[in-house]
């Protein structure tokens, strides 16, 4: 080492830079992971000491009471999004990946459709909520309603589902498609039985993450779903529907401790919901990866 030091006087500087680089990357990770743990732990620590299971089975009274209506409302919204946005998003992804005609130079086609998906995926959610309010709730006289909330929420997550479906389909080896065609399979049949079947875990993972996003959304719902302390009624129009994020947002700055409990309880339930969805998405990915490695 001493020889190196003599011939390259910058060695100490380079070594210091190397140490700095290692330290910096670990520090950055700590600065990201630390607040993430702090955040989840902070909600758990606030919510758990006052946690009562009856929260799940009693109706809300605004700033006190339970969250049964909100939990069921969130689940209804998620189910609706799964049907509406799931259907549209998966079909869009399949179309953009498999069916659209590629351009002359081999680049993927569907230019303007793809741009719209990209732009919509970054579109501010509150602007969608505003348009839902003025166009659907007021303009079409739907009032605060399940349908308005579903349409706006779906518009928000469709791009996400479309993109994840498309990337799942792109990971299906071209050999599969060629093999299916060589066997004389009709296009639709090959698509269903070979291509989509192989991409299914990726598609489902994207759907689960999109559901987690939809369940945690607030801004597009505040002025489309309204608020209600009653159980969801499954009426599509004129009936407001409650959801968990609403109680986090309205009760956190109320003066009573009960309101704070409601806020933190709703946050805890949301975190558990999101974790369940993300962990199951993770498990699907891990399982299919193991499967893929074993067949290789």
């Amino acid at each position: 080492m001493s020889i190196v030091t003599q011939s390259y006087p910058k060695t100490n500087l380079r070594r210091a830079r190397s140490v700095f680089y290692r330290g910096f990357s670990l520090l950055a990770l700590a600065l990201v992971a630390g607040p993430a743990i702090w955040l989840v732990a902070g909600v758990v620590v606030e919510a758990v000491p006052h946690w009562q299971w009856s929260v799940l089975t009693t109706l809300s009274q605004g700033t006190s009471g339970g969250l049964e209506n909100a939990l069921l409302g969130t689940l209804v919204l998620m189910a609706g999004v799964l049907v509406l946005a799931g259907g549209v998003g998966v079909l869009t992804g399949i179309y953009l990946s498999e069916l659209v005609r590629p351009r002359r130079n081999g680049a993927p086609g569907g230019g303007v459709l793809r741009i719209a998906v990209d732009v919509l995926s970054g579109f501010p959610s509150i602007v969608l909520g505003y348009v839902g309010y003025v166009a659907l709730c007021v303009g079409l006289h739907w009032g605060y309603s399940l349908l308005a909330a579903l349409i706006i929420l779906s518009l928000m997550v469709v791009p996400y589902i479309a993109k994840s479906t498309e990337s799942a389909l792109r990971q299906v080896p071209t050999n599969y498609r060629e093999g299916a065609e060589a066997l004389g399979m009709p296009v639709g049949y090959a698509l269903r039985r070979v291509v989509i079947k192989s991409a299914l875990p990726g598609i489902v993972t994207g759907l689960l993450i999109a559901l987690a996003v939809a369940g945690g959304e607030t801004a597009p719902l505040l002025y489309t779903a309204g608020a209600s302390n009653n159980l969801p009624t499954f009426a599509f129009l004129h009936q407001p529907i409650s959801y968990l994020t609403y109680y986090v947002w309205t009760d956190y700055n109320q003066p009573t401790p009960q309101a704070h409990y409601v806020s933190y309880d709703a946050a805890l339930i949301l975190i558990v919901l999101v974790l369940l969805l993300l962990v199951s998405a993770r498990l699907i990915v891990a399982r299919t990866q193991r499967h893929a490695e074993s067949t290789r």
């Binding site: 990201v32 993430a36 987690a212 607030t218 947002w249 975190i271 999101v274």
Partner: peptide, 11 residues
């Protein structure tokens, strides 16, 4: 880090 991405903004 992925969980952090999934935490609702209101939380």
């Amino acid at each position: 880090v992925e969980i952090l991405a999934g935490i609702p903004s209101v939380i």
